[in-house]
């Protein structure tokens, strides 16, 4: 109880599609991937740009949760402040593009830099800035564990939220609008499906990284540090360093998702730092199923679908969503993937 570590992600020897025993989960994963390719292509043919936007939103949320899953799933670190990194990614995009669009130099020394509308540069800045923030927050909050860690990450999230509100230069409470989506060399990002392709590629890279980490020495050591920190220490590894690295990596990926999300909406505001968003990222992972590679993806897709369909039925859809979440936590361990594919291997 007191350590707050959660039940886990077993190292998966067969990589992204899992061993034979997990045939149904692998099939489900393949179907999800197929859906993420086919549905937007269908939407292009049927001229339904809104559907593409919806799927893009789901894919970006999934990437944010895949980032969180490195800290939460592999490291057992229940971070309730991951919106910080999402927001930093968003503001990295917002600030760089705002300077470029308004012809106000960001800095003039040592060289003149006028901001940029180029996605690769923005992504690099978003990843570096959120990794740096994750490193600093991790350095402070990983001194503790369990509920302390949860409360501290939540509090730091609120700190960034209030700071963004009071930062009048970049829109304060109102945020910033970027009028034209940023560019990517060789692509027309104004075309929804091409931007979607970029987001999906980022998600796949994130999933690949997660799958590889699970069976890499680092992932195994991190998993061990979650289950038995004393033993890890006894073999000469430092659990704190492992967790700090995992937390930093996790923040960097969520930061990238934030930059993409800002570009999807062409808008950033302090709500990207809100604690509700941090909570929702955790919900995505649990809704899909903890200890599942595709858990965050399934969870994010379900959330966006419910938000769309239930939200159209009633403006109070959060009541139903809350009740569903409650039922899953209390009675349905294993999330939606667990319901379909049976228990995770670790519990066999």
């Amino acid at each position: 109880m007191s350590t707050g570590q959660i039940g886990g992600q077993p190292p998966n020897p067969r990589g992204i599609f899992g061993p034979k025993k997990q045939g149904r989960e692998a099939l489900l994963n393949a179907l999800v991937l197929l859906g993420l390719v086919i549905v937007p292509l269908w939407a292009v043919m049927a001229d339904e740009p809104f559907t593409i936007t919806l799927v893009t939103r789901a894919v970006i949320f999934a990437l944010a949760a895949v980032g969180l899953n490195i800290a939460l799933g592999l490291g057992g670190l229940v971070s309730l402040g991951h919106a910080v990194f999402f927001g930093i990614g968003g503001y990295a995009m917002g600030i760089l593009a705002w300077h470029a669009q308004n012809y106000v130099p960001l800095f003039e020394w040592p060289v003149l830099f006028e901001g940029t509308k180029s996605m690769p540069v923005i992504w690099a800045v978003a990843v570096l800035a959120s990794a740096l923030a994750a490193f600093c927050i991790g350095l402070l909050s990983l001194r503790t564990s369990g509920v302390y860690f949860i409360m501290i990450t939540l509090a730091f999230g609120q700190m960034f939220y209030y700071f963004a509100i009071s930062w009048a230069r970049y829109g304060g409470e109102d945020g910033m609008s970027i009028y034209v989506r940023n560019g990517f060399p060789g692509l027309n990002t104004l075309d929804p499906i091409q931007f979607y392709g970029l987001c999906l590629a980022a998600l796949l890279l994130g999933l690949l990284l997660h799958a590889r980490l699970r069976r890499a020495p680092f992932g195994l050591a991190l998993n061990a540090a979650r289950q038995a920190p004393e033993r890890v220490r006894a073999v000469g590894l430092d659990p704190l360093r492992l967790r700090l690295l995992a937390f930093t990596l996790s923040g960097a990926i969520t930061g990238l998702a934030g930059a993409l999300f800002a570009d999807l909406n062409r808008f950033v505001s302090p709500t990207m730092f809100s604690w509700q968003l941090s909570g929702e990222f955790i919900v995505f992972i649990i809704l899909g199923g903890t200890a599942r590679l595709f858990g965050p993806v399934v969870g994010a897709v379900l959330f966006v679908l419910m938000e769309h369909w239930l939200g159209a039925l009633t403006e109070y859809w959060h009541i139903g969503f809350g009740a569903l979440l409650l039922l899953i936590v209390l009675f349905g361990q294993g999330g939606v993937i667990g319901l379909i594919a049976g228990k995770a291997r670790a519990h066999d």
Binding site: M1, I6, G7, V78, L325
Partner: peptide
Amino acid sequence: DHLDQVLATFAL
């Protein structure tokens, strides 16, 4: 564990 407590009370 604390994760379940966070989620259930978040749902509340």
